[in-house]
C-alpha cells in the first residue's frame, strides 16, 4: 500500500499528524474545559428552572422571609449569579493565557520534550501551528459555550441594573469581544511560553498580561469611543437625559454658557439646590447630553474585536519568529 493510500485510509475525518499529537498530549486540559462547560450549563438551567418553579413572594407583610438558599427568591439568586458570572467571564483570558503558556508550551521546553517534538519530520513551525490551532479552536468553543450558558442564565434579568449592554463583563459576554480577548490570550500564552520556557513563571506572566488587557481596555472603552451629543436651549437638561432613551448609555450631561463653555450637571444644583433651576449670573443658554446610543454597541464590538484579533495575530507572528530563531 502506498504512503498516500495509507494516509487516506486512516484519515477518515480523524485527527492527523501534529493535530493528533497535540490533542492527545493535552487531553486532560480539553476534558477539563468540557467539564467547565457542563458545569456552567447545569448551573444556568438549574437557576432558570428554579426561578420559574419557586415563585417570588409578593404578598408579604413587612420583609419577606428568605425562600431560596438564603436569598429573597430564586430569581434574586439568579440575578446575583448573573452579575458574578459576568465578572467571572472577564477572567477567562487569564485562564486561557496561563494554560497555553504553561502546560501547552513552556512545559515542553522545561522538560526537554521539545527536542523530541522538533526533530520529527513535522517541523517545529507545524508543532507550534498545531498547538495554536487546537488551542484557538478549543478556546472559541469554550467561550461560545460559556457565553451561551451565560446569556441563557441572564435572560430574565437582562437590561436590569448591572446587566445593561454597557456594563463591564456584560458587554464582553455577548460573544465576539470575549472570544477575541481569549484568542489574544492564546497568542500571548504561546509567546510567553517560548520566551520564558518555564511552566509556572510563563503561566503567571501570560495570565496577568492577558487579564490586564481586558481589564484595562474595559476601563476606557466608553471614554475612547466618540460619544453622540444632543443639545437644547434653556435649562431643560433633565428632559434631554430622558430623550436619549432607556437603551442609551448616558456619559455626561450639563449646561452650556453663552460663551460656549460647558458647566457640569450640578452647577445649578450647587447654587439653588434645585435641579435645572439656574441663577442668571451663570449665563446658561442651553444644555448638552453626551451618550452612547445602543448602535454604538455594534461599532465598539466590531472595533474592539478587530483590534484584539490584530494583536493576537501580531503575538502569534512573534512566537513563530522566535521559534524559528531558536531552532535554526
Amino acid at each position: 500500500m502506498s504512503a498516500s493510500a495509507t494516509l487516506r485510509r486512516s484519515s477518515g475525518g480523524r485527527l492527523r499528524g501534529p493535530y493528533w499529537t497535540t490533542v492527545r498530549l493535552h487531553r486532560a486540559i480539553l476534558w477539563g474545559a468540557l467539564g467547565l462547560v457542563i458545569a456552567a450549563a447545569v448551573v444556568a438551567v438549574a437557576l432558570r428552572v428554579s426561578a420559574v418553579v419557586i415563585p417570588e413572594q409578593t404578598d408579604c407583610v413587612g420583609a419577606c422571609t428568605d425562600t431560596f438558599l438564603g436569598f429573597d427568591s430564586a430569581r434574586a439568586f439568579l440575578g446575583i449569579t448573573a452579575d458574578y458570572a459576568a465578572t467571572a467571564l472577564l477572567f477567562l483570558p487569564f485562564l486561557v493565557g496561563a494554560v497555553v503558556a504553561g502546560p501547552v508550551i513552556a512545559r515542553e521546553l522545561e522538560s526537554g520534550t521539545h527536542r523530541l517534538a522538533w526533530t520529527q519530520s513535522a517541523s517545529p513551525a507545524r508543532w507550534l501551528a498545531a498547538k495554536l490551532t487546537v488551542a484557538a479552536v478549543a478556546t472559541t468553543a469554550l467561550v461560545l459555550a460559556l457565553v451561551g450558558s451565560y446569556q441563557f442564565l441572564r435572560a430574565p434579568v437582562a437590561g436590569t441594573y448591572n446587566q445593561r449592554w454597557v456594563d463591564r463583563g456584560v458587554f464582553e459576554a455577548y460573544g465576539p469581544v470575549l472570544i477575541a480577548y481569549c484568542l489574544l490570550a492564546v497568542a500571548i500564552g504561546a509567546l510567553a511560553g517560548l520566551v520564558v520556557r518555564r511552566t509556572l513563571p510563563a503561566m503567571a506572566i501570560a495570565g496577568v498580561v492577558s487579564l490586564s488587557m481586558i481589564l484595562a481596555v474595559g476601563s476606557v472603552r466608553w471614554d475612547v469611543f466618540p460619544v453622540r451629543t444632543i443639545t437644547g436651549s434653556g435649562t431643560g437638561r433633565m428632559d434631554g437625559t430622558m430623550a436619549i432613551g432607556r437603551d442609551s448609555f448616558l456619559m455626561q450631561s450639563g449646561y452650556v454658557t453663552a460663551s460656549g463653555d460647558r458647566l457640569p450637571y450640578n452647577a445649578c444644583w450647587q447654587r439653588t439646590r434645585d435641579f435645572d433651576s439656574c441663577p442668571a449670573d451663570l449665563n446658561i443658554t442651553g444644555w448638552y447630553v453626551d451618550f452612547h446610543p445602543h448602535t454604538h454597541f455594534w461599532w465598539v464590538t466590531f472595533a474592539e474585536t478587530a483590534i484584539m484579533l490584530a494583536l493576537a495575530a501580531a503575538a502569534a507572528w512573534a512566537a513563530f519568529r522566535l521559534l524559528r530563531r531558536r531552532t535554526v
Binding site: 504512503a3 493528533w20 499529537t21 520529527q120
Partner: peptide, 16 residues
C-alpha cells in the same frame, strides 16, 4: 503517553 501512543506519535509525525 502509553508505549503504543508514543509509537503512534512517531507514525503521525513521520508520515510516509
Amino acid at each position: 503517553l502509553t508505549v503504543t501512543e508514543t509509537l503512534r506519535l512517531g507514525h503521525e509525525l513521520n508520515p510516509g
